[in-house]
Design a protein around this nucleic acid. Structure first.
Lengths: 339, 339
DNA sequence: GATCACTATGAAAGCGTTTACATCACGGAG
DNA sequence: CTCCGTGATGTAAACGCTTTCATAGTGATC
């Protein structure tokens, strides 16, 4: 019987002389079938190379063992660490990840969410809380557990990182060592509440000391090293020149560092530079980068744990919140303000 | 009728006074239904908030609009650029990506592949050709188009990057500028044909000039900056000390660069360092890193194009191969051998 | 006016599972 | 010896969609 189709439950049932229901049980609830029958079925299944069809299983059971994840980009060092850990946790529990990215475009995000929901994911992981009303509607209609990363709202489980605090710490550090004129290079603030919160944190720290963060001292840039350089160049042209620069993402700070060095400006003696994220390379640069550590990998682990609990029904309570700490990492790219 | 279930085709059919078949056609082949009927159906569908259930669609049609991707890691700069572009291309064509990573563990890879296949992906993208026999069996049984990235075998479509050539170019460059004693820091060679090929390329370039690559001059490391530092440290202890080091991944080379600088060894005057990959940061370091450019983003784009062609039946011919060029990028971390 | 091709629609059979519900055999309780 | 609970298995109805095939209606053709 050389059929060239994949074998189905039916085939196994016929070959093993059991009913299709018994075979189904043998696959998913083996404790319900007699050991002897079970073994016979398993032997046949192995011989035929039977692999359960999850699409059918998903349709019948309403569970797809699939988690949808939507992130802004896949190739940022931060998100990719988070993803890596998330994938590890979910895979260990039999779940696959459907991953989409939207590159900070609201329409793409809505589309991605809609697609994932229509694919029937069992759970959803999203970054940030702020989003287009249409996207919110999609999430609402999805009727599956949702975990928000980074920033969250009270109506869903969330793993938050205090971005405001991260900005605050970075600015506080610089103010503490005498800086009064601080420039900021940040990502585009539209559709990005992580970046917005960091900038607000910086503002708060400055205002506490009676300083203000003028709009002109903020350079909005894409989140790349080159953009960091460009932002740095802009800020350095201002008079009086800032004595310190905060990049609200390490990539930006690193770009700024390179740009300053390229122009012969001594870091940290003539210019202090601080970042936020603590990416791998930050510790190795010279001078090593002062930054605020964001536990990116942990975010992934915790988010997976939270979602798995919901899926298993172990947590039916109100929306949980796991707030991960951010910590200042003072290295050698910052120093007391000159003069 | 406030049912709290998601509306189905049936609901739309009832409300719009058409049959379920017509509604189905209105959704997926609108040209087959009369404009007037179509509009009525669309109006009802919109009012009910109907979203097609792709699980059911997949089961009935045999197409899931889902592509499985298995990569070693998600958080490498190289793979994540590839993924980003791939995701972009597929999303533009209505496909979602099921992404898994195995962290260079053969068993995990087999498991991931099996899961993806059982999920019923329409196509599969894998990295490299060499894999465990069990994994090959899974691929064979999958009966879906497969695209191999980086290294490929003749039985599948593939987007290759000549890793051998990349290694060759890097070594050739160093030999050309007078280096005779070259150390190599590479990733673990087991289960990683990209790394193996790069090392072999280096070996070939050296042997062409009558040089040999002693096993002792190769340091196998994980693919991280810290590991690059460690590898560099090991190599620097050898006597005579190598005058040049190749990191077969930029992260390794960057680590080596930092380590050398940390030890007060002038790069490139006392020690030349070259990498392979051309990651973003390479151009910005000081000295900027001499490396071999690997078109990571292109790999994603091309792979998606290849797979989409197969899925659309536009290409039913023999396995295609797209070989992307690698190019030497000489910067300032390499210089003529001292003496 | 009968025939034909064609279009728009409907009825119904799957797709491969899961899962009530029914059945049956068996053994212990009364 | 009958009754009933129990455990193993089977039957069949979903799950929500696609798709084949049949049907009815519409003009055009001879």
């Amino acid at each position: 019987m050389p059929r060239h189709q994949k074998p189905t439950l039916n085939d196994v049932a016929r070959e093993s002389g059991s009913s299709i229901a018994t075979v189904s049980r043998a696959m998913s609830q083996p404790e319900l079938v007699q050991p002897q029958t079970l073994e016979r079925i398993r032997e046949v299944a192995a011989r035929l190379g039977y692999v359960p069809n999850r699409r059918a299983r998903a349709l019948a059971s309403g569970q797809s063992e699939t988690i949808g994840v939507v992130v802004p980009t896949l190739n940022s060092p931060i998100f990719s660490s988070t993803l890596q850990e998330m994938q590890r946790s979910f895979a260990a529990n039999g779940f696959q990840l459907l991953i989409a990215s939207h590159e900070y475009d609201a329409a793409s995000e809505t589309a991605a969410l809609a697609q994932l929901v229509s694919h029937g994911v069992d759970g959803l992981i999203v970054v940030g809380a702020k989003r287009a009303p249409s996207a919110l509607a999609v999430l609402k209609a999805a009727r599956v557990p949702i975990v928000q990363l980074w920033e969250g709202s009270a109506d869903h489980d969330r793993v938050t990182v205090d971005n405001h605090q991260a900005g605050y710490l970075a600015a506080r550090h610089l103010v503490d060592i005498g800086h009064r004129n601080i420039g900021v290079i940040c990502g585009h603030l539209l559709n990005n509440d992580r970046q917005s919160a960091r900038v607000e944190g910086i503002r708060a720290a400055l205002e506490k000391d009676g300083l203000t963060l003028a709009r002109t001292k903020i350079s909005e840039q894409p989140l790349t090293i080159s953009a960091g350089r460009a932002g740095c160049m802009t800020l350095l042209q201002m008079l009086p020149r800032p004595t310190a620069i905060i990049g609200t993402a390490d990539l930006l700070a690193i770009g700024a560092l390179f740009e300053a060095q390229g122009r012969g400006i001594a870091v940290p003696d003539a210019l202090s530079i601080a970042g936020i994220d603590n990416v791998d390379v930050a510790a190795h640069l010279s001078p090593s980068l002062t930054t605020v550590d964001i536990p990116a990998a942990n975010i992934g682990t915790e988010a997976a744990a939270l979602l798995l609990q919901r899926l298993r029904g172990e947590n039916t309570g109100p929306a949980a919140r796991i707030a991960l700490p951010v910590t200042m990492v003072v290295r050698h790219s910052t120093a007391r303000a000159p003069g």
